[in-house]
Design a protein around this nucleic acid. Structure first.
Length: 895
RNA sequence: GGGUUUGUAGCUCAGUUGGUUAGAGCGCCACGUUGACAUCGUGGAGGUCUCCAGUUCAAAUCUGGACAGACCCACCA
């Protein structure tokens, strides 16, 4: 027993008074760093690398959820004796961050071009640093037990070394190539976008039917006519059969031009007139068609989204301006057949800035996903990445995606993957590690020593660097990263101890963006999988199931909620009700009710510590009361369940079990019982139960549990050992199942009496008399006499007999094996009681009939397992017994 | 167009391999300061488990279909 026990504990838990101090205590203990954990040599590693938040601002509820789940896993494994590492970091998020800073400097009347590359990047760095500091503070506020000594950034020196070396590896292997391809181009960002960075939006526009030489064909973009080099039809389309292979002269707004008619399967003969104009430079499909038939492409739209100087009088117009002008001119020339209004189609937009995407040919760097390479055992990136999740690669178990159904999505995406465009025409990010000098090209970690080499202007897709996150973060400095035998080698103890990481916990929305990219980069660069499990959490939505967004004004800020209800409550609200891959609705009310739970645990502890007093001495199992046994058994089961659930990532279920046990079994029943229980072991039982309960609650609500722990122990709960059920089994081994559940009978009797009081509206201060005839159960019921009397039953006199005289003027309760009488004593009249019993009687009869019906069914008797039939027969016996008793009693009432 | 997913009490959701008189929390109603907690306690009302068919002795649970919603992928001129 500690002296601290006498310390006054506040009536309600006030998170603000403790959280900051507790976090500091954890941090200064050093336990977030696995190196400082006192563990045996052979302790297993457990690692999670934090998905790095973008340095574009502040964290939202989605981040809060992610931090909560990962902290639960980390704390759970740390307590279970693993060398637990949770490695934090942030992402430079190239386009997103650059866009944000461009907006900021625009307010000062500046642009990135007016500032120049160097000065602009300095501004971005400054912004990123500020953002980073805010984020770090928020991560700490959430109670995250991550190791700050290893913190990483996707754009720092160590990560840059990894990026440059992997680029070099892939380049030398022929997987990275430079080529002129049609890419998604954002005219505002002035950069390419990956396929999955493009978003689509429904739009109602016009469909123009053009008179096009011998054809009439439809297009939504008449301005691209200037870049047409062919007309395509379906090979089996009889209407155009004769025309295939021939050249035709077409009248255009800038004079005549020639197109070739080609037959291609991708053309839908049902759509429009079945003939398609082909603009190879400004459409992905057209580009593919043209490539198949050796049709040249003609670029007419430039990087600003404007018509190029080969467009005559339309030169310099935006595509939209050109469209209007061209349509007007074509109408005057009689080249428009008709215009269809209200044509529904989809616009492609930049996912960062919502600008309309312009497909255009551009010289870019790509990763070839189909090329087979010795580095992957003669397989392609695509093949290896599918296998990694399907059956496992490099003699490892397969990567498990939780929930499993997302594996299908992953396969579909991977199978359809096209070459990945990795260059971006922005300034913020890892610069492409390629240098040019005249016709020469150099790819490497640093610029060649001689003068005259110029580095590629472009930077790399942000996912190229975040794809290396699991291993690049495990290098402590650039010197540890090297190329050896065509593989990247990380020469650090961390890499040995913690890679592959145990689980990647992230949202399903970035399964393709990021998770797939990590599998690509890791399998290729280091010949290993990045993680064993992928746990995908759902999105956090508002209480109406809508996405939270600033424009909708429905954002719940985690910091506000922490301020108002505390971190623990905020965390718990994100855990309870969340299942993998499923979105979760969050409301302030939910967080408030979790605050109540946290406070309840506080008060449970306050009561035990201050009033009951803790006692750490060993429990004498021969002196346990019925209630003692039940609560010990309950705790045992709880420890078992929570442990196994957490191993299976069942966060919500385990938190609900904890909540249910704490509030109902412990507070409402056992704690109430101890107030009147003369058992000698209750202090010891409560001490054991409370301590273990705090331990298993700790990963979920670390602050309040640690705060309470301070009351009776000098050690940190953070590094306490996770409880096992062995101790409980030792204590309870002498008792059988019936013993361990006897307290349930006591509860039933008490509830039944309370029920009658409430139903008959017996005044609260009115004491009642209760007579129980208990038959075989008499000894047991007598042992529960005090509890039955005191636990809010308002009993003045309680008589417990084996059997006795018939009592007529009483309320009657027929419990499973006992009969309870409450003499009217002027409280109730016979009429009311008769009605109540008749009501009950008819219910039991209805129930009995339904079971009888079942048992009269021969097929049931023949086919159902014997246990099931026996169970039904038992039910009948019980119901019949009850009916008989009630009938007899009603007769007595009548007399 | 392809795919995934959801439909259980007014609301949010549990419901393990088919066998429960279908559960919890919030909300609602009625009581209530009994050795911690009104951020609390006690009791109660409230459900044709979306609908239709099928499999089975037995379906909230399995199968098929319908209806309604959510999401993802592809993209058509």
């Amino acid at each position: 027993m500690s002296k601290k026990e006498t310390r006054e504990i506040a009536k309600t838990y006030s998170p603000k008074d403790y959280e900051e101090e507790i976090y500091k205590k954890w941090e200064s203990s050093g336990a977030f760093n696995p190196k400082n954990l006192k563990l045996p040599e052979n302790a297993k590693g457990y690692s999670i690398v934090m998905p790095p938040p973008n340095v574009t601002g502040t964290l939202h509820m989605g981040h809060a959820g992610m931090l909560a789940y990962q902290d639960i896993l980390t704390r759970f494994h740390r307590m279970r004796g693993f060398r637990a590492l949770w490695l934090p970091g942030t992402d430079h998020a190239a386009i997103a961050t650059q866009t944000k800073v461009e907006k900021l400097i625009k307010e000062e009347g500046l642009s990135r071009h007016s500032l120049g590359r160097k000065a602009f990047l300095a501004r971005v760095d400054e912004f990123a640093q500020k953002s980073h500091d805010t984020i770090e503070n928020q991560i700490k506020k959430m109670g995250s037990s991550c190791d700050w000594s290893r913190e990483a950034f996707t754009l720092d020196k160590t990560r840059n070394k990894a990026v440059n070396l992997v680029f070099k590896l892939m380049y030398e292997d022929g997987l990275i190539y430079r080529g002129e391809r049609v890419v998604n181009w954002c005219p505002r960002c002035h950069s390419t976008l990956a396929d999955d960075e493009v978003e689509y939006k429904e739009e109602t526009g016009k469909l123009y039917w053009l008179k096009y030489g011998p054809f009439v064909l439809a297009t939504a973009r008449p301005e691209t006519k200037l870049g047409d080099t062919a007309v395509a039809v379906h090979p089996s389309d009889k209407r155009y059969k004769e025309m295939v292979g021939k050249d035709y002269e077409i009248q255009g707004v800038l004079g005549k031009f020639t197109v070739k008619v080609i037959a291609d399967r991708s053309v839908d003969p049902e759509f429009g007139s079945g003939a398609v104009k082909v603009t190879p430079a400004h459409s992905f499909i057209d580009n593919e068609i043209a490539a198949r038939h050796g049709i040249p492409m003609k670029k007419i739209i430039d990087e600003d989204g404007k018509m190029m100087d080969n467009c005559g009088k339309y030169t310099g117009m935006t595509t939209l301006e050109a469209r209007e002008a061209i349509v007007k001119d074509m109408q005057e020339m009689g080249l428009i057949d008709h215009i269809e209004e209200n044509y529904e189609h989809k616009l492609s937009l930049c996912y960062r800035c919502d600008t309309v995407i312009e497909p255009l040919p551009s010289l870019q760097w790509f990763i070839d996903v189909n090329k087979k390479t010795n580095n992957l055992g003669g397989k392609s990136i695509k093949e290896i990445c599918v296998e990694a999740v399907k059956s496992g690669v490099f003699e490892k178990e397969k990567i498990n995606i939780i929930p499993e159904r997302f594996e299908k999505n992953y396969f579909n995406w991977m199978n359809d993957l096209r070459d990945w465009c990795i260059s971006r025409q922005i300034w913020y990010g890892h610069r492409v590690p390629v240098w040019y000098k005249d016709e020469e090209i150099f790819v490497g970690e640093e610029a060649p020593a001689e003068e005259g080499w110029l580095q590629d202007e472009d930077t790399l897709d942000t996912w190229f660097s975040s794809g290396m996150w699991t291993f690049s973060t495990l290098a402590n400095n650039p010197e540890q990263i090297k190329i050896k035998n065509g593989k990247l080698v990380i020469n650090s103890a961390d890499f040995k101890n913690f890679h592959p990481t145990n689980v990647l916990e992230t949202g399903y929305d970035i399964l393709f963006f990021w998770v797939a990219r990590m599998i690509i980069m890791t399998t290729y660069a280091i010949g290993d999988i990045p993680f064993k499990d992928v746990y995908l959490h759902g999105l956090i939505l508002d209480e109406n199931g809508k996405k939270m967004s600033k424009s909708k004004g429905n954002v719940i800020d985690p910091l506000d909620m922490i301020e108002k209800f505390g971190t623990d409550a905020t965390r718990l609200s994100l855990v309870i009700g969340s299942t993998p891959g499923k979105d979760i609705k969050l409301s302030e009310g939910k967080i408030e009710s979790m605050r109540n739970m946290v406070n309840k645990l506080w008060n449970i502890s306050r009561y035990i510590i201050q009033t009951i007093e803790v006692d750490n001495s060993p429990i004498d199992k021969t002196k346990l009361t019925i209630a003692d046994k039940t609560i010990l058994q309950g705790t045992r089961n709880l420890i078992e369940k929570v442990s196994s659930d957490l191993k299976e990532y069942k966060f919500s279920r385990s938190a609900e079990l904890l909540k249910d046990f704490s509030w109902n079994e412990l507070a409402d029943w056992y704690l109430e019982a101890t107030k009147f229980d003369s058992g000698t072991e209750k202090k010891k039982v409560l001490t054991l139960v409370l301590k273990d309960l705090l331990k298993i609650w700790h990963p979920f609500i670390p602050f309040v549990t640690e705060t309470i722990w301070e009351q009776f122990n000098d050690s940190l709960l953070l590094t306490e050992k996770w409880p096992t059920i062995k101790q409980y089994n030792d204590i309870l081994s002498d008792f059988d199942d019936t013993d361990l559940h006897l307290f349930d009978k006591t509860k039933e009797i008490i509830s039944a009496i309370r029920n009658i009081r409430a139903e008959y509206k017996v005044a609260p201060d009115k004491k009642i008399e209760v007579i129980i005839y208990a038959g075989d159960k008499t000894d047991f019921i007598r042992s529960q006499e005090t509890l039955i009397k005191k636990l809010k039953t308002g009993i003045g006199r309680l008589i417990i007999e084996r059997s006795g005289n018939k009592i007529a003027n009483a309320v009657y309760i027929s419990q499973s094996e006992v009969e309870i009488y409450i003499p009217f004593g002027g409280l109730v009249d016979a009429e009311k009681e008769r009605n109540r019993l008749n009501e009950e009687l008819s219910q039991v009869r209805k129930y009995l009939n339904s079971i009888k019906k079942k048992l009269q069914n021969k097929a049931f008797i023949e086919n159902a397992p014997k246990e099931i039939v026996a169970k039904e027969e038992e039910k009948i016996a019980l119901a019949e017994e009850k009916i008989k008793k009630i009938e007899i009693f009603i007769k007595q009432l009548s007399n």
